[in-house]
Amino acid sequence: MKQLRSIVLSIVMLTIAGIVAIPFYYIVVNTLKTQPEISASPLGLPSGLDFSNYSEVFATLPIWQSFLNTLYVGVVSITLMLLIGSMAAYGMLIGQGLLTRLIGVMCLIAFLVPGQTTLIPLYRMLSGMYLVDTLEGLVVLYMAGSIFCYFLIIGYMRTLPIELFESARIDGAGAFRIYWSIVLPLIRPILVTVGVFQAMWVWNDFITPNVFINSPDKQTLVLQVYSAVGQFSTDWPAFMTLSVIVLAPLVVFFIAAQRHIVSGLVTGSVKG
């Protein structure tokens, strides 16, 4: 009975997933076709696998350099923003009083700012710090994401049984030790989830590197994708091929990370 239900569930979910995946099918399949094939049937299967789109893109654009740049910016900024966000969330959890509430309101305000409007002030600030056209400058800007991390993490922390923190407090451990060795392991599912979300954002963000990066050797991957965009028309085969190249590492990352999202609370850590 239980097994049957699991099989039915599998069939239903795989079918829905198949429908949801149609646009991806379209993207991937068209990177493997020649131009005439695409125009003949945009949705059809290719007559043979044609990897010339990929080889051409790798031959003409500095994909590897951009990949390393993006990886560097991504790893550093996500580590930092998770740290800042989770520290803030923990601080808010243990803190009381007006000032704490003020900081909470502050984070909410930050959340509402439409990013487009602060571009010019940010550019002036960054150029004053000689951080325009540096990868570190991008990292600084991406720290804005720590507010988002804070929101997701504090929401999660509030759902945790409070005894988990209390036991360590009674032992007389300092707040920083509790944060480091109790809180961080406990909130791992949300850390990984937020990390995945933010990795997607940083990896795909176009506006920030477009405005703040000038040198071709400091470009991020997404800027390479947009090199296929022209004034009147877009080179769609190149655009789709580049998109697949940009997305592939994210797909691998998500598959690797999702085990940690749903591994649940490890029993050992509950004991405190």
Binding site: G91, I94, G95, C107, M143, A175
Partner: peptide
């Protein structure tokens, strides 16, 4: 309370500088 402000200090800096 003091510790909690130390923990929230980085996010306050982020808020002031970037927002």
């Amino acid at each position: 309370g003091i510790e909690s402000y130390l923990f929230t200090l980085p996010v306050v800096i982020v808020f002031v500088v970037l927002f």
